[in-house]
């Protein structure tokens, strides 16, 4: 049967991995290619690189990271951040990425989802949604790295993205991001039920119990985490063992085989 996935996320700024709290205060966490290769070895199921370099003249740095990662990493990896055109998508896929994530550009130009899915297949188009709570059971879509409110309802946007041909939803709770108090489970569950696409829960994980909750109570297909892995609070293997002990199906790797 299909396993639940654990996905380390690497925020990349100027070719270095960084991690902030609530989208600011960046701390250096290492070389992206080295970290990616380490996570592959440790049994991560997939990787996501989010390019948080604002200026487009630094984009070449990211293409280089992708190219070098593809030479050493033999699990699927996704690139997101600043991709605005079909040509941007093509470049990343050509450099060796398996999927790309669209956020701001998808909200501003929804047909980019459609064109991307048509040109490269739905399986490589991930729509990333940054969500902020507005009222109980309601969430609003934010863009520009969480700086701009769009007035759009998260559940409606997720359903529209699916209809346009998205293959997966990467759902980040802005209220929880960097807080380490756990995923926003109501949000995750609501989006998982609103679409029939795989949903990756993101934002707020601080313990292994949070990972388990995201996959069970949140009904997510995959969980994304950054700092708990980067700062070696937990290893991927520990996370998998913890989940397996709770009856959650995970890929057997390393010592677990």
């Amino acid at each position: 049967m299909l396993s639940k996935r654990i996905i380390p996320c690497l925020d990349v700024h100027d070719g270095r991995v960084v991690k902030g709290t609530n989208f600011v205060q960046l701390r250096d966490a290492g070389d992206p290619v080295e970290l990616a290769a380490l996570y592959d070895k440790e049994g991560a199921d997939e990787l996501i690189f989010l390019d948080i370099t604002a200026s487009s003249d630094k984009r070449e740095t990211m293409v280089d990271v992708v190219r070098r990662t593809a030479e050493q990493v033999f699990i699927p990896f996704t690139i997101g951040g600043g991709l605005r055109t079909i040509e941007d998508i093509r470049r990343m896929l050509r450099a060796g990425a398996d999927k790309i994530a669209l956020n701001t550009s998808a909200v501003q130009t929804p047909r980019l989802i459609q064109e991307g899915a048509h040109a490269f297949g739905s399986q490589c188009i991930v729509v990333a949604i940054d969500a902020r709570s507005t009222a109980p059971g309601r969430w609003e879509v934010y863009i520009h790295g969480g700086r701009t409110a769009t007035g759009r309802d998260v559940l409606e946007w997720a359903a529209e993205a699916e209809a346009l041909g998205a293959g997966e939803i990467l759902l980040t709770s802005m209220d929880r991001d960097g807080t380490k108090i756990g995923y926003e489970l109501e949000l995750t569950k609501a989006v998982s039920r609103a679409v029939s696409l795989p949903v990756i829960a993101s934002g707020g994980v601080g313990t292994l119990e949070h990972l388990a909750e995201g996959l069970t109570l949140g009904e997510a297909d995959a969980v994304l985490a950054a700092s708990i892995f980067h700062y070696k609070e937990y290893s991927i293997e520990e996370a998998k063992r913890y989940l397996a002990e709770r009856g959650i199906l995970v890929r057997k790797t390393g010592g677990l085989v």
Binding site: L2, S3, D45, S122, Q123, G167, P198, D221, A222, R251
Partner: peptide, 10 residues
């Protein structure tokens, strides 16, 4: 089921 079948399977 969810389609595509995406992820790790045995």
């Amino acid at each position: 089921g969810k389609v595509p079948h995406m992820g790790w399977n045995s």
